[in-house]
Simulated assay, not measured.
Amino acid sequence: MLEHGGNLRDAAKRFGRDDWLDLSTGINPRWYPAPQVADNAWHRLPEPDPALTAAAQAFYGAQLMLPVAGTQAAIQALPRLRAPSRVAVSAPSYAEHAHHWAGHGHSMTLTPYDKLEAAVAHNDVVVVVNPNNPTGAEVPAAQLLQWADQLAARGGWLVVDEAFGDTAQHNSVAAHTARPGLIVLRSVGKFFGLAGIRLGFVAAQAELLGELADLLGPWTISGPAQQIAMAALSDHAWQADTRDYLNANGERLRAMLAAQGIQSNGTPLFQWWAEPQAEAFWQHMAERGIWVRLFTQAARGIRLGLPPDDAGWQRLHAALNEWSKR
């Protein structure tokens, strides 16, 4: 199993403390206040609720969507819906994509963002994380749509993972997924801070969504998760306030790092930089009870999410000061 952020039990076991400031995930620390769900949500088998799909289609701007148990479910399943193919996966990016496309008989290559255009001509499937996790890199929507058309002309796919796209909706291609070969993944966990309900959506043409639904099987989304997500996706006032909050705090984090001489990139939900002493920085923070995301492979560096409160910001500022003065 690949390593991911949010693994506080591992942190506690390794460093022997339980007062963690968890900045390792890039998930909104001010999560949507989940409403009380109907009692029968715990009792009935969770048949798909069309109201949930309608709320998602309205929020994401897509014509057709399929609810899935987090984008992870789709990432694991999509490679099983194609015959052996040549696949280019954007790199560095969320490692689960490459991990699963490398199996199931596919020929997978990791492709830097500046080489993706060339990869479109030589592959059957191109996977792009946009905005990228962990670096925050973005490919313009117009460019993605050109690539989707090129791939579709020969039966190929463009898979666009927009899990962190809720703060950059202007660059989403979800509204264009009625065209063949374009598949978009969206997540309720990041922007809404509801990773625990395990819910995401896939936007694509009806035939592909039907094949994916058959593969995933029945009752994939719990009843409580469906009710909570419907409330979150329909709460426009909360969404507007949250975008303002995330934009302001994302800039606050970028500026705090810049004041320490760290030039970072990212999204309103996280910042990343190629830290030359990545392991030492990770160790420094962990010893102070701050859990950050260490990357040691292609995206060698550090990713930080947003602190949840003033006390968290103060702890992070103090730890950064100590790092810069070491």
Score class of each variant (00 low, 15 high):
residue 7 N to P: 06
residue 8 L to C: 06
residue 8 L to W: 06
residue 9 R to D: 09
residue 17 R to S: 00
residue 20 W to S: 05
residue 23 L to H: 10
residue 26 G to P: 01
residue 27 I to T: 09
residue 31 W to L: 08
residue 31 W to G: 15
residue 31 W to K: 11
residue 34 A to D: 07
residue 45 L to R: 13
residue 48 P to Y: 07
residue 50 P to F: 02
residue 60 Y to C: 01
residue 61 G to T: 00
residue 63 Q to F: 01
residue 68 V to E: 11
residue 72 Q to V: 14
residue 75 I to A: 14
residue 78 L to N: 10
residue 80 R to I: 04
residue 84 P to N: 06
residue 92 P to V: 03
residue 94 Y to W: 13
residue 96 E to M: 14
residue 98 A to E: 15
residue 98 A to R: 08
residue 99 H to Q: 14
residue 100 H to Y: 15
residue 100 H to R: 12
residue 103 G to N: 13
residue 105 G to I: 10
residue 110 L to E: 12
residue 110 L to D: 11
residue 111 T to V: 09
residue 114 D to I: 03
residue 114 D to M: 08
residue 117 E to I: 05
residue 119 A to T: 05
residue 122 H to N: 12
residue 130 N to T: 02
residue 138 E to M: 06
residue 139 V to Y: 00
residue 143 Q to F: 03
residue 143 Q to P: 02
residue 144 L to G: 01
residue 145 L to T: 01
residue 159 V to G: 02
residue 161 D to N: 08
residue 163 A to N: 02
residue 163 A to Q: 01
residue 167 T to P: 00
residue 167 T to L: 04
residue 170 H to Y: 09
residue 174 A to D: 00
residue 177 T to H: 02
residue 178 A to R: 11
residue 179 R to S: 07
residue 179 R to G: 07
residue 181 G to E: 00
residue 182 L to E: 01
residue 189 G to Q: 00
residue 191 F to Q: 03
residue 195 A to T: 04
residue 197 I to V: 04
residue 198 R to N: 07
residue 202 V to W: 02
residue 202 V to Q: 03
residue 203 A to Y: 04
residue 203 A to V: 03
residue 209 L to M: 10
residue 213 A to R: 15
residue 214 D to S: 15
residue 220 T to H: 14
residue 221 I to Q: 05
residue 221 I to C: 08
residue 223 G to A: 13
residue 223 G to L: 11
residue 230 M to A: 14
residue 231 A to P: 12
residue 232 A to W: 03
residue 234 S to K: 06
residue 237 A to G: 03
residue 238 W to Q: 07
residue 238 W to K: 09
residue 241 D to R: 15
residue 242 T to L: 10
residue 244 D to S: 13
residue 244 D to R: 15
residue 244 D to W: 08
residue 247 N to W: 12
residue 257 L to A: 09
residue 258 A to N: 03
residue 258 A to Q: 04
residue 261 G to W: 08
residue 263 Q to R: 15
residue 265 N to C: 11
residue 266 G to P: 00
residue 272 W to Y: 15
residue 278 A to H: 09
residue 279 E to M: 13
residue 280 A to M: 03
residue 281 F to P: 05
residue 287 E to I: 01
residue 292 V to S: 15
residue 294 L to S: 01
residue 295 F to N: 13
residue 298 A to K: 10
residue 299 A to Q: 08
residue 302 I to P: 13
residue 312 G to R: 00
residue 318 A to Q: 15
residue 319 A to M: 13
residue 324 S to F: 13
